[in-house]
Design a protein around this nucleic acid. Structure first.
Lengths: 191, 191
DNA sequence: GCCATTCGTTAACCTGGGTTAATAAATCTA
DNA sequence: TAGATTTATTAACCCAGGTTAACGAATGGC
């Protein structure tokens, strides 16, 4: 299980044998039922996770109580509310498992150990963050420039493998419209 | 001029005297007229900059040719198309100086030198990226949850010092609506 | 397999932003 | 200062998405 993470990390940095062993020691395995929360809104995110199996969604609750699904992560991806994790602020988004999910997690302090003690620890932190940043900025650009219809098409393209695992209303939320509107979009596109 | 940057960097990491001296050597001073481009769309962003004086806007051009202003940076802030800079990809946004602007710049390679040779170089890169990431994710959240009216109010709040330096249509673009719509919003709020 | 629940679509009506164009105000420029 | 240009507002009309509610379809639990 930890080997999947070590493989993933090895794409980014070199790991010594001791470092690999440390990873095996320090990451804890957690399992969640469908519907359970990896992180609740308002909590400080004190752990970063690597999803071994399953899927999570990021849930943003509006002032009026409506829940929006703004992102997904699946197996072989990291999951964390990084903003909350970094500055120990209350999380604005919840992270909910939408399938039975297994996540291996590391605490904030242990991750700082990786940053500090691994030969390329800081670099690992930087590369992860750079990846997340580029992803976030592309999303901003898409929200600025693309109509819902185009964002829907892009979603179906980029997340095609996820689609069969997702209800329609998570997708409509991600795209930024309500379910009836997504239905209309799908109807328009059907022609 | 470089001392401003050194001050700024010192908020994030410790700098030795040699490191400070290296910064003075390697950052080059560039000046721009109002309207000139720090970076054009399609170019690879090969330099990161620190704005000593003036202001820039980030310009995203839609498929239909319309220019959107999606962000601003002013004096004492960094400017860079980080996504392009990181992976040497063609920039999707231009960076235009909207006032007479002075920027001190560092090349990609020299910045890698900082990452590699400064005692806390990797940490500096990580912290900058973390800051940018948190900013980007907050923007995504705002685009998802806030109506244009609310985003306008937030802009007026957060960027209040910038407002007198900006034309209305940059603000409307940033908020995500067209000028007539921003006029309507302002009219509604006037009551 | 049956019932209850959840989910996706559709219809009718509403609303707020887009579009276009005209006008007024502010800014530049010579 | 006058004239040209740019910028901001307004009006009229259009349209896509929101809202609400109804109705099937799919799903889940027992």
């Amino acid at each position: 299980m930890h080997e999947l993470l070590i493989t993933q990390m090895s794409y980014l940095i070199r790991l010594s044998e001791e470092e690999k062993e440390w990873i095996r020691q320090v990451f804890a395995i957690k399992t969640y039922e469908k519907g359970e929360y990896f992180l609740r809104e308002g909590q400080v995110c004190r752990e970063a996770g690597f999803i071994v199996e399953g899927m999570v969604r990021y849930v943003l609750t509006r002032d009026d109580g409506e829940e929006l699904t703004v992102d997904f992560n699946k197996e072989m991806e990291y999951t964390c509310n990084y903003a909350s994790f970094l500055d120990k602020s209350p999380s604005e988004t919840a992270i909910q498992c939408i399938e039975p999910t297994t996540i291996i997690v590391i605490s904030y302090d242990d991750l700082q150990e990786i940053y500090a003690r691994f030969a390329e620890g800081q670099k690992f932190g930087r590369l992860i963050c750079e990846f997340l940043y580029v992803q976030a900025i592309k999303k901003v650009q898409s929200l600025y420039t693309n109509e819902p219809e185009k964002r829907y098409l892009q979603f179906m393209d980029v997340y095609s493998t996820l689609v069969p695992r997702l209800p329609q209303y998570y997708i409509s939320s991600y795209v930024g419209v309500k379910p009836p509107s997504l239905s209309r979009i799908r109807k328009r596109l059907a022609k």
